Simulated scan of single mutants.
Amino acid sequence: MTILILEQALNGLQFGLMLFLLAAGLTLVFGIMDMINLAHGSLYMVGAYLVASATAASGSFALGLLAGVVGAAAFGLLLEVVVLRRLYQRDHLSQVLGTFAILLMCNEAVRFVWGSQPIGASAPAALSGPVELLPGFFYPAYRLLIIGAGLAVAVLLWLLVTRTRLGMQVRAGASNREMAQAMGVNVQRLFSAVFGLGAALCAVAGGLMGPLLAVQVGMGESILILAFVVIVIGGIGSIRGALVGALLVGVVDTAGRTLIPLLFEQLMPLDLAASAGPAVASILIYVLMAAVLFWKPQGLFPAHG
Rank of each mutant, 00 (worst) to 15 (best):
T55N: 07
D91V: 01
I5M: 15
A141L: 04
L272A: 14
A172S: 13
L22N: 03
V287G: 11
N186D: 15
G167R: 04
M268A: 14
G241H: 08
F195K: 04
G256Q: 09
Y44D: 06
G198S: 10
A200Q: 09
M179K: 14
G220E: 02
R189W: 11
L50S: 05
R257I: 08
A123T: 03
F15M: 15
A24Q: 09
Y139P: 07
I147T: 08
Q181P: 03
T55C: 10
Q266N: 12
I36N: 08
L157P: 14
L38T: 06
L84D: 08
S222E: 12
G68A: 01
E132V: 11
L13V: 11
I225S: 11
G12L: 08
E80C: 01
S42L: 06
S122F: 14
E80W: 05
S53L: 13
A74N: 04
E265C: 05
A227R: 00
V29P: 02
V292L: 08
G184H: 02
L300S: 11
F191S: 14
L134G: 05
R111A: 15
L208H: 00
M183F: 09
G41Y: 05
L63D: 13
M219P: 00
G25V: 03
M168G: 15
G150M: 00
L104C: 06
A227C: 06
G196R: 10
S42D: 10
G207W: 00
G256N: 09
V131H: 05
A154P: 09
F138Y: 12
E221T: 14
G98P: 01
I239W: 09
I5R: 06
A255C: 14
P118Y: 11
V252K: 04
G98D: 11
I285K: 09
D253I: 07
V161G: 00
G59K: 07
L212N: 10
L127K: 01
V217Q: 12
C106T: 15
L248D: 08
A149H: 02
G129T: 07
Q298R: 13
A200H: 05
P118G: 11
K296Q: 06
S42M: 06
G71W: 07
G129L: 15
Y44G: 02
A101H: 13
M219E: 05
M209V: 02
S238I: 03
V113I: 09
Y44C: 02
L78Q: 04
G207L: 00
R240D: 15
F15V: 12
P211R: 02
L156H: 06
I236L: 05
R177A: 10
F75G: 04
L212V: 13
N11P: 02
H92T: 10
I233F: 07
L156W: 08
G184T: 01
A180W: 13
T164D: 11
A203G: 02
D253P: 00
I231F: 11
L66G: 07
S53E: 14
A126S: 15
P135R: 13
V230W: 04
A291K: 07
V170I: 14
F61S: 01
M268Y: 09
A203C: 03
I225V: 15
E7H: 13
L224D: 13
M183W: 08
L65P: 06
